[in-house]
Design a protein around this nucleic acid. Structure first.
Length: 203
DNA sequence: TAGAGGATTGAT
DNA sequence: TCAATCCTCTAC
């Protein structure tokens, strides 16, 4: 069952980021259905410095974040990678959840083809990789998640509270004290989460 | 309008 | 450890 507007348009982006774990992100690009169970997310709020929309700063890039919840915010990072976010909260309140890793369950063949690899373990374990595997790019920026080519479904999978790990978000050292907010959520023990490194420590 | 830098990744 | 790669934002 597709998640409805009311799921996205709530105020608590951190809660939504946790609840998205276990949901299934699906795309239909050129009739190729691909998708996976979300196992890693990060919450971003306009109230903190890690967010593109901090202090209500609206630019050409992030203006989708200021629209009503339930849309895709896709942007290009490092000139190479497309990153996929879910816009949450109501119009004017620019919150979003970055999807960082999936467990592939639909269209594995297409994903392997897009990633030019034989290893399914590597196709969706990182925010830049999963967008490529699912065929997501900036053309889907602003796209409504309730119909069309990209959406999120509830497959009835719920991870118990004690199996969700909260840690600090990746790659936002510039956010000063807000860089320490424990707003990255991963499924404990999942072999599908991203392998980013903080300092010398692999996490 | 030029210049710097980024919510990453994979190869070395 | 570092290059790839280009869009976005800021300052001038």
């Amino acid at each position: 069952m597709k998640l409805e507007e009311s799921f996205y348009q709530r105020k608590d982006v951190v809660k939504i980021a946790k609840e998205l774990l276990g949901k299934v992100l699906i795309t239909n690009i050129n009739q190729n259905i691909t998708g996976g169970i979300i196992v890693e997310t990060e919450a971003y709020s306009f109230k903190e410095k890690g967010c593109h929309a901090y202090n209500n700063r609206m630019t050409e890039r992030n203006k989708v974040m200021f629209e009503d919840g339930g849309r895709a915010y896709v942007y290009l990072c490092y000139g190479i990678h497309h990153l996929f976010n879910v816009v949450t909260n109501v119009e004017g309140k620019a919150d979003a959840v970055l999807i960082r890793a999936l467990e592939p369950i639909l269209g594995e063949t297409y994903m392997l083809k897009r990633m030019k690899t034989q290893s399914i373990k590597r196709v969706t374990s990182g925010p830049g990789k999963l967008t490529k595997a699912l065929g997501i790019d900036r053309r889907l920026n602003g796209h409504y998640l309730l119909h069309g080519r990209v959406w999120i479904e509830d497959y009835g999978i719920t991870f118990p509270k004690n199996s969700i790990r909260a840690s600090s978000r990746i790659g936002i050292a510039y956010a000063e004290e807000d860089a320490d907010l424990p707003w990255r959520f991963t499924v404990k023990g999942s072999e599908w989460i991203s392998k980013m490194v903080i300092g010398n420590r692999a996490i």
